[in-house]
């Protein structure tokens, strides 16, 4: 049996890889069999060729998009944690601020890009701001929820020992909010890319979004897909990084049925 050869985890991983490879093979085959025009759907091999050929020219755009996203994300995480801590610090703050937060977060972020462009002109600033606002809300909401739902009995144990609010925050509330924070970080990093690319396609002269925009108007469809592929890779790599960090920091949350987060 293969299972004995690889073990369940390795099997799972092999299956995932096979699935991805299979997806691209199927795509390639479909393009050939139905003779789909490369202007509609280029073959993956063509996309890959384009990517390799144009890679040196794409590097500054990759750097631009990555940098913009990371700045927006970092600022968003910082603001999100601070706001989330404020909102989650008390029941009253939570109940007061929640409706406004939900209102803000339900605004489609596409709609704010023109406003940022109006305020700051086209370029890097609106892209940073878009990725910033787009990733704040999931973090605020999750951190606030994580802090607000700390087990009262765990707090009682510390209170009975005469612990200060600060000691309770650092020993109970913050650690127990960690799984919520990491769940939010993983959502936020992918959203931050969305924000950057969104803004880049509307108003920028650099970045992957801009490259794709120009490629579209030139009917350079393989390049458009190469851009998509690059975005997917960056997103997956960063998501993976945070998953790894999550497993190190709060692996306890995904183990056993004993955790309060089950």
């Amino acid at each position: 049996m293969t299972q004995r050869l690889l073990g369940p985890r390795a099997m799972q991983r092999a299956a995932s890889i096979a699935f991805i490879v299979g997806f691209f093979l199927l795509w390639e085959a479909a393009c050939v069999v139905f003779s789909i025009s490369p202007f509609v759907l280029p073959r993956p091999s063509a996309v890959l060729m384009t990517l390799i050929e144009r890679f040196p020219a794409l590097v500054p755009h990759i750097v631009q998009t990555l940098m913009t996203t990371m700045i927006g994300f970092a600022a968003g995480v910082f603001t999100g944690i601070v706001l989330g801590a404020l909102v989650g610090s008390s029941k009253i703050a939570y109940d007061t601020a929640y409706p406004l937060l939900v209102g803000f977060s339900s605004i489609p972020k596409v709609a704010v890009v023109p406003i940022f462009v109006l305020w700051f002109g086209s370029g890097t600033v609106p892209a940073i701001l878009t990725s910033y606002v787009i990733c704040i809300f999931p973090i605020v909401v999750n951190v606030a929820t994580g802090l607000a739902t700390t087990s009262p009995e765990q707090q009682d144990v510390l209170k009975a020992l005469g612990a200060s609010r600060r000691e309770i925050l650092f020993n109970i509330s913050l650690p127990s909010a960690m799984p919520y924070l990491f769940a939010a970080l993983k959502v936020a990093i992918t959203l931050a890319f969305v924000g950057t690319v969104l803004s880049e396609t509307v108003a920028a002269n650099r970045g992957i979004g801009n490259v794709m925009m120009i490629a579209t108007s030139n009917f350079d469809v393989p390049l458009v897909f190469a851009g998509l592929f690059l975005l997917a890779v960056m997103g997956v790599v960063l998501y993976g990084l945070f998953s790894l960090l999550e497993r190190r920091v709060c692996g306890w949350a995904s183990r056993g049925a004993d955790t309060p987060l089950a």
Partner: peptide
């Protein structure tokens, strides 16, 4: 007053 306390739930911190 820094008493020791234990509840029906063990309330161990899972992390």
């Amino acid at each position: 007053a820094r008493v020791g306390i234990a509840f029906q739930n063990a309330t161990m911190l899972p992390w």
